[in-house]
Design a protein around this nucleic acid. Structure first.
Lengths: 225, 225
DNA sequence: GCCATTGATTGACCCTGATCAATCCACCCC
DNA sequence: GGGGTGGATTGATCAGGGTCAATCAATGGC
């Protein structure tokens, strides 16, 4: 999941045609919170589609700075191989179920044409979403970043809570910070600001309710207050 | 071209197997400086590989903020379609020659298997390079950003100039700024800093010579001074 | 139940990079 | 050659967000 420009609203995350064949023993299809699916440098053997749960893809700099590349929500494909190796670490944030696809399906067109085509389109959508995310990282303020993030989550995985939209945040504040290019302190302060201006309520640390979605959307697009 | 982590050094930008067939009249294969290849929203009919010259891909926010998504250097593929429409504007910065590929080659596996496979790999490499670029936009200082940018350019398109590496910068300072998530003033000041610390010399506004490549690489990775 | 641990929040302060404004410079056209 | 134009540089100032540090709150172990 990337923070894309709301107006575009691709939203059409479709589940790929799942292959009916049972995956071999060697593949992970279920992760407990905190479990790692792969590490940076590992050989890519499988792509995965998240079917339930949330994972986090991170990249580290030698001095410890971290960037959360993406969160993997149901429907998302993770593990696209450029060279033969993973470029990120992947950790489960919640109980997560995965549908594995052999990497060769992407490279070898014959084995399963439909799946090949579906994975290809997922890769192309990924490129497009990442382009939008550049704008967010490079050009948006802390306010706009967090508002955009909440808008995208509300749209994609929000649930109804008494007429309002409720958003679960399985990740920590520092995960959010490293995703948006901020610090935990700034993320925390920005949450507080949104709460004080009655745009959201913070039910608990992992759940926010969006009280004024239009105001939030406005903020995400650069309107002040 | 994205600003990737230098140590990885993919660098292996290979030209695709060019199709021998003459492209139809309707396609652009040559652009003069300032000419646009496509605009955001245009229908994607062709992918292009830059064979010579440099193009710039940009995305605009309604309030005028701009993000340069990428520069297209020889070898780069531009115009990957997610939906059927372009998500960026594309302008030539120099005299540019392009090799067009029908979009259908990506989607239709039959027409040209080799080319299909080559384009697919280009797309996967693109994803990987963009992930590195996230780190740069989200987590690097102005110094590190510009140093990284110059390192990547030196590696990729630098030429020899009396034992030193000379780098042509066909883009304006504000293009660089919008690419790195900075302002033109900051880019300009950072160039001046690099010049004052004798890491580069600025031959003219569009050409820099790298005097101390190791120092520049160090800066790009977060070493101070 | 009590304390230790870890993450979140808040506060005080500072610094990097943005903003606003004033030259400067290269290039071009008469 | 003179002057006009637009991008680049430099300067002065400001502010958004980072840093450092002090609570606060939730969780877990004993």
């Amino acid at each position: 999941m990337y923070v894309t420009i709301p107006s575009e609203n691709p939203s059409a995350f479709a589940f790929l045609p799942l292959c009916g064949t049972k995956p071999p023993q060697s593949v992970q299809t279920h992760l407990k919170p905190g479990a790692y699916l792969f590490y940076e440098g590992d050989e890519v053997e499988w792509l995965y589609q998240v079917t339930s749960g949330v994972v986090r893809l991170t990249r580290l700099l030698s001095d410890g700075r971290r960037q959360v590349i993406a969160f993997g929500y149901p429907g998302d494909i993770i593990g696209f191989p450029a060279t033969g190796n993973h470029h990120t670490d992947c950790e489960a944030l919640t109980d997560t179920h995965l549908q594995p696809y052999k990497r060769s399906i992407l490279e070898d067109r014959e084995s399963d044409p439909n799946l090949h085509s579906a994975l290809l389109h997922a890769a192309l959508n990924e490129i497009s979403a990442m382009q939008d995310h550049f704008m967010m990282l490079g050009r948006k303020s802390a306010n706009e970043k967090l508002a955009s993030f909440l808008c995208v989550l509300a749209e994609r995985v929000g649930t109804d809570a008494g007429g309002y939209r409720s958003v679960k945040l399985p990740m920590s504040r520092s995960d959010i910070a490293d995703f948006l290019g901020l610090t935990t302190e700034t993320v925390s302060r920005t949450f507080t600001q949104l709460r004080n201006s009655k745009i959201i309520t913070i039910e608990n640390i992992h759940t926010v309710i969006i009280q004024r979605p239009t105001a939030l959307l406005g903020l995400s697009q650069g309107e002040h207050d």
